[in-house]
Design a protein around this nucleic acid. Structure first.
Lengths: 185, 185
DNA sequence: CGCATATTTTGATGTACATCAAAAAAACGC
DNA sequence: GCGTTTTTTTGATGTACATCAAAATATGCG
């Protein structure tokens, strides 16, 4: 069982041969809490799925860490800028629990695109899905008050509250921990 | 000369046959200032390029119009939700000048994907590009003050200021026209 | 041109959220 | 289990931006 393949299958048909190729190239990692998968400035990139654990993506702005997203089990992720543009990441990806994950590096991904051009369909649908998610996030940041953004988040990722401290959540929402505390009361 | 094909070529090779097929399916429209290309609730969708004119995309939030983006000549655009998910649009696309544009409808696009599977590569790169642009917008809304967002905008679309009134710009920035006026001073 | 309308600016005041400080509560390590 | 560290809450005060009203300016149109 390869969780990456399971996730990719959600976007379309993968032939046996293609599945074998992906399986062959998939790397498995165990990581400890607070380790990093990616640090800003790196170009190393990949699609990946966490089979166990949780991650945050954060970057630095105005001298502070700002969380940009959280990742839970059985979703497919990537760092957009390195994967889609081969440009250095401005974000850091860090494990917030001891975690296990499956990675398909950008080099392996390219090789697969070469060998199985039909895989571009999956890649297209994946990127299109990311667009949808990002559009929601933009609208939320553009028009909602902090409390509405908070409710949107717990609606979309309800388990997050039990796994991640409120300081991290506040940072994702674009407010301080103090404000989040007052909002929740 | 088909401006849509010119834009698509930026993302990769298009065979003669593929270009012919796109050209055959491309529709040309002239539109007057204040006409709409798309209204919220509609599913009708497409990729399109404006050869002359300017557009804004806006939606309704808290009883007000909120501008989500502006489009100028010779860029390829779409409405993400209808095109990528076949879901009703929540945004409206309106011309702010008398305009001319070239459209490839979602039905024609699907037909092309069927007939030329290699076009999925272009579609993938296009969607990936949209992700990059959206990520920047998210970061801007997440961490910047209004004045910084203003400077980002005029850096990225410097001609906008001469073509669009400040109320529209303010709405895009997520502030009121009054605040924008004070910021500019 | 001259009047009507739309846009931009200015001023007074209100509100969402930030900052700083410190207490309270929870989690962690030995 | 107890002390240390981290997280969360509470309070006082500051700031970025909103709201409402109205004046100044620009634009559109017969």
């Amino acid at each position: 069982m390869n969780p990456l393949i399971e996730q990719l299958k959600k976007y379309g048909y993968l032939s046996e041969k293609l599945q074998e190729e992906i399986a062959k190239r998939t790397q498995f990692f165990s990581k400890n809490k607070y380790e990093h998968l990616l640090r800003e400035g790196q170009i190393m990139s990949s699609y990946f799925v966490i089979s166990k654990g949780i991650i945050r993506s954060y970057f630095h702005a105005n001298g502070k860490e700002v969380n940009s997203w959280f990742g839970e089990e059985n979703e497919i992720f990537c760092s957009v800028l390195p994967l889609y543009k081969r440009r250095p990441s401005f974000e850091n990806i860090q494990f917030l629990e001891d975690s296990e994950l499956y990675i398909l590096s950008v080099e392996d991904l390219d090789a697969i695109y070469q060998q199985f051009p039909e895989f571009n369909l999956i890649g297209r649908l994946l990127a299109e899905e990311v667009c949808i998610i990002m559009e929601e996030r933009i609208t939320s940041l553009h028009t909602e008050f902090a409390i509405e953004r908070y409710h949107s988040l717990i609606k979309k990722q309800p388990k997050l509250l039990n796994r991640i401290n409120l300081g991290h959540i506040a940072s994702y929402l674009g407010i301080t921990a103090e404000t989040l505390s007052r909002i929740r009361r």
